[in-house]
C-alpha cells in the first residue's frame, strides 16, 4: 500500500537520535508485548502471510507516526485478537480497568516447559526462504532492469515507492523465495526469484543525490521489467 510506513527518501523527520547504552526493552511491557506477539504469531489463522506487516502499515497515519514501535505492535496484536474473536473488545476493556483499579493485580501464570524448549529451538532454527521449485530466474547479474512504475498495490508490498519507475542493475540473484506481497485470502504465496538491484543515487534522487552513492534493494521478479 502507498502508506505512511513507506518512508524512504521523505524529508522533515529531523535528526537521527541515538541513545547511548540503550536497553533492549525500555520498559518491561515492551518485552512482554514482543514475546506475546512472537508467540501469538504462531497461532494458526491469526495473521495470514504478510498480515502482521499490513496491519502495522494500516494504522491511522497520525497514530502510526506518533506511536512508539512496541505501541504499534500492541495495537496490531489487539486488533487481530479482537477481529478473530479470540478476545472480545469488552473483556479486554474490562480487564484493563480491573488492572488499573487493582495495583496489586498479579498476572496469572501458566507453565509449559515443553513450549519453552520449542521456543528456544525456534529462535535458533533457520527456516531458509529458498524454495526448490524449478523456477528459472529471468534476469542475471549485470542485467539492466526497471522497477515497475504502474503498480500501486493496495495491500502489503515490499516495493518501496522511491524505486518505482527507476532503472537499476541486478547485483546478485538471491534465489527463489515465497512472495510476501498481499495475496487473496485462502491462496498460497507463489515463489519467485528475488534479486538484489543496485540503483545509482542519481537515478533515484537526481540533482540532490549525494556523490558516489548507490542503494541496493531486494526485489521479487514481478516488480521488475527489462530496461
Amino acid at each position: 500500500m502507498n502508506g505512511v510506513h513507506d518512508l524512504g527518501g521523505m524529508h522533515g523527520f529531523g535528526p537521527v537520535v541515538r541513545e547511548d547504552d540503550e536497553p533492549v526493552f525500555h520498559e518491561a511491557w515492551e518485552g512482554r508485548i514482543f514475546a506475546l506477539m512472537s508467540l501469538m504469531g504462531q497461532h494458526p489463522g491469526l495473521f495470514h502471510p504478510g498480515g502482521f506487516r499490513f496491519r502495522l502499515e494500516s494504522i491511522d497515519p497520525p497514530r502510526y507516526l506518533s506511536s512508539s514501535y512496541y505501541e504499534k505492535w500492541m495495537m496490531v496484536l489487539e486488533q487481530a485478537l479482537v477481529e478473530k474473536g479470540i478476545v472480545t473488545a469488552d473483556e479486554l476493556a474490562a480487564r484493563t480497568d480491573h488492572v488499573r483499579e487493582h495495583a496489586d493485580f498479579k498476572l496469572p501464570r501458566r507453565e509449559d516447559p515443553k513450549l519453552v524448549e520449542l521456543i528456544r529451538l525456534a529462535a535458533l532454527t533457520r527456516y531458509p526462504p529458498h524454495r526448490e521449485v524449478g523456477v528459472a530466474p529471468r534476469f542475471a547479474t549485470g542485467d539492466r532492469v526497471r522497477a515497475r512504475n504502474n503498480i500501486n498495490p493496495a495491500g502489503h508490498t515490499r516495493l518501496p515507492r522511491y524505486v518505482r519507475g527507476r532503472r537499476g542493475t541486478i547485483d546478485r540473484v538471491h534465489g527463489v523465495h515465497d512472495f510476501q506481497d498481499a495475496i487473496p485470502p485462502g491462496t498460497k504465496a507463489q515463489p519467485q526469484p528475488v534479486y538484489c538491484v543496485r540503483f545509482d543515487a542519481n537515478e533515484l534522487w537526481g540533482e540532490s543525490a549525494e556523490p558516489r552513492e548507490s542503494v541496493y534493494v531486494d526485489m521479487w521478479e514481478s516488480y521488475l521489467e527489462p530496461a
Binding site: 508467540l39 500492541m74 489487539e78 478476545v87 498476572l107 521456543i119
Partner: peptide, 18 residues
C-alpha cells in the same frame, strides 16, 4: 499489556515461562 497477557494465559494460548 498486563490485561492482554492475563487473558491469553487464562485462555491457554500462551504460557508465562515461554
Amino acid at each position: 499489556t498486563k490485561a492482554l497477557e492475563s487473558l491469553l494465559v487464562e485462555k491457554g494460548l500462551v504460557s508465562s515461562d515461554a
